[in-house]
Amino acid sequence: MNETNLDRRDFLAKSSVGLAGLAIAPGMLLYDLAHGRPLGEAASNKVRWGMLIDNNKCESGCTDCVTACNTENGLSGGTKPTDSQWIRKVQLKDNFTGRISSLPMMCQHCEHPPCVDVCPTQASFKRADGIVLVDKHTCIGCRYCVMACPYQARSFVHEVLTDQKPEVPRGKGTVESCTLCVHRIDKGETTACAEACAKAGHNAILFGDLNDPESAIAKRIRAVTSTQIRADLGLNTGVRYEGI
């Protein structure tokens, strides 16, 4: 008990440092606040991982997040209709005002994910901390989840794969999508896309715990207007956008 309290105090201290950082160099430290849990402990529903993507900061031609994701997860980076794309840059043009912008699109890690509802074998599931994943051991490759996903976030592996990353197993005949870099989160790190975006100096992707009122992301969504894509569906997405 004592230990957890210490952790908490330590964490609060760190977040105030983070806050100071926020004042000096907005965004610089934001992605660092992900706190890992001890090895061997199960993911807890006290945490809900999410991302806030600032459409205004996202640069149109930049695809650093996509490249980082491909490298991190061992994706080929191909863009044929049969290639997997876990994250993609979408170019938007408002039909009425003509405003042009771009944003990264990936699995939105819904609280009520349609892919989990329709999966016949429970291979699509939501982890306690809100990350939506595919258990490739039980996925039979029926692709019903691809049909059900409102965000076109899922890909089906069409070919035999070799040389997968040890932390990111993927294989022919199963469905996959953004894992929110679960292997990094479990080590207390941030996602590859958020890291790459910060490295490029855009800081458009803010990753963190939506449930922790002290986290940078929670503070930010309290302060600014953010949107869920297809909010009408009532899925309560973990990935939110500002400035669309």
Binding site: L39, G40, A42, F125, P166, D186
Partner: peptide
């Protein structure tokens, strides 16, 4: 199953 479903990592029997 423990690692995949619950996120328990760093245990004894790991394929990697």
């Amino acid at each position: 199953d423990e690692t995949m479903r619950k996120g328990i990592r760093g245990q004894k029997y790991s394929l990697a």
